[in-house]
Nucleic acid binder design. Structure first.
Lengths: 252, 252
DNA sequence: CGAGCAGTTGAACAACCTCAAAAACGGTGG
DNA sequence: CCACCGTTTTTGAGGTTGTTCAACTGCTCG
């Protein structure tokens, strides 16, 4: 589909450096599976396929999507290294999964995953917590789609990506956008044109600065003011914990 | 808040008559807790409250909502008898829960819920399945908000409600709308006016027929054609299983 | 009865979409 | 290395859907 192979570096979602060394993680269940490579644009599975496997994203970026009437596409999430795809109790996938970039995944039969989880009951709360994070992400997204303006949506999205990059702690991280404008549009419930225009606008205002092919340097504090999550006159410092990642889709 | 007490009858979500008699259900964990009554408009908890309890809706309807910048409200779900509220691994609720109608709930301390689940491990997959259903519902909602027109949103919503009524199997069930137009608008990402106009339009076209104060009789097949889930020229008969309810919010 | 709120209706407006075309990539092959 | 081709992105002009603002109706319940 694409011949392009883009550069990107996102860090695994739930693998904090120290915890990884001491306690078994969900990823460890997949550790000894061989990795498979999916070319950019290639499909891992389609909506409606028998849901026989789970996958762990090892490297790259996936998009999770649905098609509704008249071929309208909705991207319900992007998946990054460390994320799981295909967890469910349904016998068919409820969405399709495609590679945005060249992607490495580890495959696991659903039955053996169940087994592994029974052998390691200490992983259960971790899986549970992940579903909860994902539910929280889904609710954020509903709020975004229901009530935010195009500009707010874009800023929220950029900040979400920023949290996944190597230097997420920096106030002006450089972030790669491996997905197309069309992907972003389908994720934010907008058109390509609207996304493009707003990227241009943010660039013109200096909130983001182009860095290389698909990269931008973000002014995260200024973007946060435009993301529409707080009152305009509130400088964003409230006491709630928002430490968790809120991005991936894990369920099928 | 409201003095109004509206009539409604929705059936419990995951309690199929037969299964309830034979196997222990999630609801059975709550069975012996005393029920509390929340007046219409009253709050069960607010976003940001310490998440000390879970609740089971016994009777009535709850709305789950968030407030984003500038006071914009987003209703992320309505909860009906049998649904659970407040399940999470976070120590604070990520949303508020208010009673749409007078509502009966059973309260459970989070720790004792954990205990109960450990005592009855056979309930674990049921809880898990519920989270999966909820995730599926969230994805439906994202698709609705991202890509559907006002009319499609309203029809989708009405059909969702229809599935919860006593006579859901009938092709022209009579359904109560216990929530206000504002609630519906905040759930569908629209304004009150747009909801009102579209209700009027559907009524004029005879797709829904007013029945009493807050009730309507639905022509479900005709509504389904307008819900935007299938291609316009496809009469809605595809092979995927869509039997599950997809409505409630359980997580906090 | 009348105050207050939910709901409806109308007219003007704005944000976003659609359609169209040009520009910029990114890769390919001479 | 450069010319070419398909794709992605940007830009522009005009149209539509849904919003905003405002007035009005009709309940319900003191």
């Amino acid at each position: 589909m694409f011949a392009t192979e883009r550069e990107y570096q996102f860090r695994p979602s739930n693998v904090t450096p120290f915890a990884a060394a001491t306690t078994p993680t969900l990823a460890s269940v997949f550790r000894n599976q061989p990795t498979e490579v999916v070319q950019a644009g290639g499909a891992l599975f389609w909506e409606g396929d028998p849901a026989k496997h789970l996958f762990e994203v090892v490297d790259g970026v996936l998009r999770i999507f649905r098609i509704i009437g008249d071929g309208r596409r909705v991207i319900t999430g992007f998946l990054f290294p460390g994320d799981l795809v295909g967890i469910s109790m349904k016998d068919r996938y409820l969405y399709g999964a495609e590679a945005v970039t060249v992607t490495k995944v580890r495959r696991f039969a659903r039955s053996s995953f169940q087994e592994k989880m029974n052998q390691h009951p200490e992983l259960r709360p971790k899986l549970f917590a992940r579903l909860c994070d994902e539910m929280a992400a889904a609710q954020d997204q509903m709020a975004l789609l229901a009530r935010k303006t195009a500009e707010e949506r874009l800023c929220s999205f950029l900040l979400l990506l920023a949290r996944r990059t190597e230097d997420a702690s920096k106030s002006t991280p450089t972030v790669e956008l491996p997905m197309t404008r069309q992907d972003i549009a389908d994720y934010l419930g907008l058109t390509v044109e609207t996304v493009s225009r707003n990227v241009t606008k943010l660039t013109a205002r200096g909130m983001i600065v182009p860095k290389g092919r698909h990269g931008y340097q973000f002014k995260t504090e200024r973007l946060a003011l435009l993301a529409g999550d707080e009152d305009a006159d509130n400088n964003g410092c409230d006491d709630r914990d928002i430490g968790c990642q809120r991005f991936g889709r894990t369920l099928a």
